[in-house]
Design a protein around this nucleic acid. Structure first.
Lengths: 202, 202
DNA sequence: GTCTATACTTTGATAGAC
DNA sequence: GTCTATCAAAGTATAGAC
């Protein structure tokens, strides 16, 4: 998971600089709530209670609960991916990100919950966010894989775009499987995917 | 996704044969509700309304809403996987299953929602169900891949168990990405995974 | 602009009547 | 076995204090 731009529209529009700053405070604190209690029992009132404000106050900065949750996830992702993504490109970066994700309690659960909600037919906040997020990461990985193919570092008999989508899917899916069965090695299983990309030996 | 045994404990215990039959009726009808409205706005009262009963009646057969939803998913999965899985083993079976899943409105959303909830720390009904489901499918695929490796049909320089977990993860993740971006080809992308498994040519 | 107070609606769940 | 009644919690929306 990575992001270079948290994107706009993840909060109520037309806020003053002071309001934007306050919104950051809310997001910072809200993340802690998820670290403590997970994503399940995290109602607006719980988050508000942890912040020492009323739940209605949160809706002054976010149009809905879902918008707040998406903003929280985007904020958490942006906090790390700045340096993380660029330092470890390709498969290696995904391995590092995946391992970092599963160590933050509630983060994968939050991600999975929001993605599931984004699949709903109606237009949710999450639908646009995660569609764009998937597309952005696919494009970045496709470019990297294409370069790898041209340099002969990985096999070139498969479309780079397919490899990009597969790697994202594998990373997301393995994080879930690992949380339900920690005995399987998230790292080595993901690295096996990298092995599959090696050019036909000999 | 596959299942040979829907498993027990997906409904209130100690029901009479007549009650079990009624529970099947409820599940059959509940699936239709998901086909029509998706998983999002599917409350107990909505399902009950479609059945012509009160929401409290549903809770006579299921301990909670989540238990009902898990039973609905297990029922939907069992309906098809009986013949589906055995006729198409290995990667081919997963491709068929994935393509069938995304064509049932709300099914992937229901699956993703329940899996996300199963990640919660507290013991949910879904936690046990999906843990066992993942383990069962991983074991089946691992056995198939191991046989393929011994027969020289796929490369044997990677653990079959890793390939099993990767394939499940890729299938689950790609279904989600496809629902958010139908322009990418679910089938050919998944088949690319099969290509990666081919033994080192030449 | 920021926030509290308050009320409205839906929902999951329980208890007890028939 | 099913219903009605009821409850607590939650998301949402509005009015108004400061």
């Amino acid at each position: 998971m990575s992001a270079t731009n948290p994107g706009p529209a993840l909060g109520r529009q037309g806020l003053q600089p002071k309001g934007v700053a306050r919104r950051q405070e809310i997001l910072d604190r809200a993340i802690d709530v998820f670290r403590e209690r997970g994503a399940y029992g995290t109602s607006l009132r719980r988050i508000a209670e942890a912040l020492g404000v009323s739940h209605a106050a949160l809706l002054h900065y976010f149009d809905s609960r879902e918008q707040l949750l998406v903003a929280v996830y985007a904020h958490a992702e942006a906090q790390r991916s700045a340096a993380e993504t660029e330092s470890h490109p390709g498969v290696d970066g995904m391995v590092h990100a995946a391992m970092a994700n599963v160590e933050v309690p509630g983060l994968v659960e939050l991600y999975s919950t929001l993605v599931a909600a984004a699949l709903d037919g109606d237009d949710h906040v999450g639908t646009q966010f995660f569609s764009q997020r998937f597309e952005r990461i696919r494009e970045r990985l496709t470019a990297e894989f294409t370069a790898d193919q041209e340099a002969g570092r990985i096999r070139d008999d498969v479309p780079a775009s397919h490899l990009a989508a597969l790697l994202i899917a594998a990373s997301d899916g393995l994080q879930i499987q690992w949380l339900l069965e920690p005995s399987l090695s998230l790292e080595s299983t993901l690295r096996t995917f990298a092995t599959l990309l090696q050019p036909a030996a000999r």
